[in-house]
Structures are given as structure tokens and as C-alpha cells.
Design a protein around this nucleic acid. Structure first.
Lengths: 203, 203
DNA sequence: TCAATCATTGACCAATTGGATAATAAACTA
DNA sequence: TAGTTTATTATCCAATTGGTCAATGATTGA
């Protein structure tokens, strides 16, 4: 049983992230967040202490959406290799790997160095991503290479998100998945088949 | 002979980037830029049409500093492999691969989707980086792999810069260079020795 | 039913800020 | 040197915005 208050808070933090996607941090005002949620500005500050808190929850919201995408795939995974696939593929889900979403995310990243709470949230997010990857890689690469490989994968993911932000539709999901595939193959010898959906026919 | 006007403009765009490093886009006000340059706010709008233009020039300035770092190394390079080294190593020059600098850069990236001119500048920057890499890779990897490898390298660089922004000193230059070294080795078989400065002794 | 809590709004305020302008000082030029 | 351009500052203004507050409407619960 969700309290009404919880429902509203969820609506608002989703609205906050939506505004971030369209306007970036610079254009992200409380009034716009309220408008996006179809409410008045007062309501936003009724549910959150201040502007900072609003966008802290927006970051949690964005990450929750990403995790949902990953967990969904993770449930189907039966082997370490499939779990690795799930984590990576989840980061490039079609409805998520969109220019606007990436831009919203980038706006939050840019704010991390100037907001202690955002930094804490970011740390938690990164730790979980690393932990998931390490666990999946345990049986796939040599023990001494696990950490570096996990870091490499998250870093490349971040880089691809950034590129999507900067280039929009000119940088495609397909290119991103091919980059990930190449990287994993080059470093682990595994063929995950991340970009298979784009292949013409099987060779 | 640099005109006085050109000198002032250079001071101001350097000041603008400095403010960006410390305060991010949110805290970047014309007054702070002026203060950073030891002048009054009016002067900033005397030399630049408006706030946008100031930060567009700040982005050019930041890129110019990066290019300087690369060109310096490029002049020593005698082989394709050395040129590849120069490009990558230049992106991680000590005075440049600093949390504050990366944060300033990230702030500008986050603004790209909302400023056409920033987007144009970014496009040029990226095109040149790609072109340099492609030229260096021409004799190092198979023709069909050149484009993807070049893109992979820039993407990983971006990702490492982002990580430096998010984690500050907790993510070291050494780790970054090791990631780049691993990546290039995995994809091209080359050992550039990017992280050699950190090695204890030769094995 | 009635009071008490909660949700929501709109008006208001003080602070910030981008930008314009006019006045002044400095530098240059003929 | 006189006059013209350029550099610089201080002041002012309108717009925006985060945040407060009191008033009002809706829900709930005893």
C-alpha cells in the first residue's frame, strides 16, 4: 500500500528527471518541474526540502530505471556469460539509450562534484555496477584481470553514453553495442553477441 | 604583435574556464568570471556579446590547451606507434588530467546539447581527434578495424575523463593510463608503454 | 459529524543575474 | 596637442527564481 505522499514524490522525481533531459541543469527550475508534473511550484517544496533534494531524488530515479532494465535481463541469465550480457545489454536498452536520457544523466554527472549527496549516490551506483560485473566476470577471466576488466567495461559504457549525449542520433545504439562487443572480445575472448540483432544474416 | 584586445579576450576565456572548473555551469556567473580575471563584470560583456559566447570561447580555450599538450608530444614522434602514444598520452598530461579540469570539461559537455555553437565546436574537436587517431592507426591495424578502433580509443578516453570527474583523486592517472594500455594492447597487440613511468622495475 | 491532518495553491519576497547605458579614463593618431 | 577611438567601471533595470507563508480545499478517522 503506497501512501499518497509516496506516489506524489515518485511523480515529482520522475518529472524532475524529465526536465533535466529536456533542459539540462541550467534550465532546470522548480517551476518547470512542477509544470512537468502538472502541479504548482509550491507542491515541489512541500515534498522536498529544497531544489538540491529534488535532483538528488531525480538521480536515484534515473538509476532505478537503469537497474530495472538490468534486473529484468538478469532474471533470464543462466550462466556467468549471460549475466555479463545482461548487465551490458541493460545499459543500452532501447528506451533508455536515448539522447535525451543520456543528456539528463550527463547533467547529473556534471553536478556531482558540487553536491556531496549526489557524489554519495554516484559512489553507491558505481559500487553496485562494479560488484555486478566482478561477480559475472569471476569465471570468465583470470582472477588478476577481473578488477581492471570490470572498470574498463563501466568506463567504456560511460564513454558511450557521453558520446550519445554529444552526438544524439548521429551516434547509434548499434555502434555502441558493437563497441562493447569488440571490447569484451578483445579483452576476454568471449563473443557475447551484443550486436547480433543488427546482423544481416548468420555468417 | 597581439592586440591588447586579443590579450584581454584570452585572459577572460581562461578565467571563464577556471570558473567552470571550480563552480560548474550552475555557479558560472559573469561576475565570477570577471572577478577571476581581476576585472569588472562590464568588461566581460565588452569583449563578448553575451554569456553564451563567453563559454563557447572557454570551450575553445580548454581544447586549445589539450591540443598544445598533444602537439608537443607529436613533435617528438617518429613512427605511427609513437604518434599513437603521443595522442593518448597527451590526453592524460599531468597538469591536465586533474579533477578540476575534467570537471570543467564535463560541465561544457553537459551544455553541448543546449547550445548549437557548443555543439559545432564539439563536432570539430571530435573530428580532429578522430582524424589524428585514424592517421596514426593506418599502419598499425587492419584497414577495416581502423574506424572502430579510433572510436573506441576516444570513447575510452572520454570515459576515463568522466570517471576522473566523478571520483577525483580516488581515481588516479595511473589507473587511467593502465586502462588505455590494456585497451590498445587487447585491440591492436601493441605495447605502447603508457603506464611505464609507474612500473617498479622491468620484469 | 466534526475536528484534525494532509494536499495544494497563489501571492509574496529577497537575492541573484544577465545585460544595457552613460560616464570616465587611457591610448592612440594625425 | 586636439580629437578620436578604445578600455573600463559604476550604476541601473527587468526578469528569473528559490523559498516562505497563509489561506483553502480535501481526506481521514474517531
Amino acid at each position: 500500500m503506497k501512501s499518497l505522499s509516496e506516489i506524489r514524490r515518485a511523480e515529482l522525481r520522475r518529472a524532475a528527471f524529465a526536465v533535466l533531459q529536456q533542459q539540462g541543469m541550467a534550465g532546470a527550475t522548480l517551476e518547470k518541474v512542477a509544470a512537468q508534473a502538472g502541479a504548482s511550484k509550491g507542491i515541489v517544496l512541500h515534498y522536498f526540502r529544497n531544489k538540491q533534494e529534488v535532483f538528488e531524488h531525480a538521480m536515484r530515479e534515473a538509476n532505478a530505471q537503469l537497474m530495472e532494465s538490468i534486473v529484468l535481463r538478469m532474471r533470464q541469465a543462466r550462466s556467468p556469460q549471460e549475466r555479463l550480457f545482461a548487465i551490458i545489454d541493460g545499459n543500452f536498452a532501447e528506451h533508455f539509450f536515448q539522447p535525451s536520457v543520456c543528456q539528463g544523466w550527463l547533467s547529473l554527472c556534471a553536478a556531482v562534484p558540487h553536491d556531496k549527496t549526489l557524489a554519495r549516490i554516484q559512489r553507491v551506483i558505481h559500487a553496485r555496477m562494479r560488484s555486478n560485473l566482478v561477480s559475472a566476470l569471476k569465471d570468465l577471466v583470470a582472477a588478476k584481470d577481473i578488477e581492471a576488466t570490470a572498470l574498463g567495461i563501466t568506463t567504456l559504457i560511460d564513454g558511450l553514453w557521453l558520446r550519445r549525449s554529444l552526438q544524439g542520433e548521429r551516434f547509434t545504439r548499434r555502434e555502441a553495442l558493437e563497441q562493447m562487443e569488440d571490447y569484451v572480445r578483445a579483452r576476454t575472448g568471449l563473443a557475447l553477441g551484443l550486436a547480433d540483432a543488427f546482423r544481416q544474416a548468420s555468417p
